[in-house]
Amino acid sequence: MKALDTIQPFIDHLDNVFVFKAGKIHTQKLKAPFDQIKVGSFDDLTEEALKTLKNTILKDYEGIDEALNASTYTTFIQVPKGFESDEKLYLFFLDGNQTEHIHLNLGSSSKFNVFEYHLDDAAGSKNILETITLGAYAHLDMASLSAYHEDSKVTFNRQGFFQEKSDATITLASLGDETLIQNTHLKLLGFQAKTELTAIALTSKKQISTIKSTIEHNAIESEGELNHYGVANDESFLTFEGMGKIEKGMRQSKNHQHNKGVVLAPKARLDANPLLVIDEFDVEAGHGAAVGRIDEEQLYYMMSRGMDKKTSERLIVNGFLHPLDRYLSEDFKTHVQNLLIQKTQ
């Protein structure tokens, strides 16, 4: 099924939506106040704006020039200062075979909810660079789902830059069959900046996925929480590499990391390598990892109520997706359920 056909039923129900097909705006629907949000390519930005971007929020972005030059397509999303809505903006990316650069920029004191869905029509090599910047006091609630073709090779490089007292909850879920490298590096740059990053991955068949997430504390009293949830099936290999990094002098910072994983098949493999790099004494930090087979007692309990082993396992595995629940509307839930069923059979 073509990616556009997959998402079309959802788009009809949505008020605020963009569909980007191979980097170009394919569908656009915006209702107030979302009509204040500016979306365009980097070409749409003034020379001055681009220069400012490069000298400020993008200055820490490693290889920005290469990224911009290599990007076949760039999408710049500017949420204006003080923007506030409890509604969501839906962004669908039907990725082609190229480098895509997405830049999401939240103006100070804005409150923004966004839901991204990345998928593709045909197998290929995809490279997605995404920067997320939050101005002071900005608040972001973001979910990003991806489901790519089995023969695709996909690299996500996400970087986040958070200013003073900004707060971002970011949930990333990889539900496709692609070979995946997902790097996420969030930098807490402003006083009391805060983030909660959750990465969920389901792997099956001979898929190899590496999920690398880093929260870097470059500010006093910054808080980071990192969660990895994984399910590995068949002969797949899933790796989580989580890092909490607190720089010297960033006192009263907090960093916590949790890894939870289930291995469904004897040949499947799931590694979780949590790491803490701390250069300051006055901090609170910790990490934990629990990876193994499905708990036999839980399985027995559920089966004793009449559901077969497969269904019980699926319900338990489904539980790993619960951080996603609040982002999903009913029709999306069904869609995600179906992806899950395919992956865990």
Binding site: Y300, Y301, M302, R305, G319, L321
Partner: peptide
């Protein structure tokens, strides 16, 4: 000692069980 299963809601669990019956 009934098991605790985080991530699975009581309603989903029971609905699936009753459905199976």
């Amino acid at each position: 000692a009934p098991q605790e299963v985080p991530g699975v809601t009581n309603s989903d669990f029971l609905k699936t069980a009753v459905e199976a019956h």
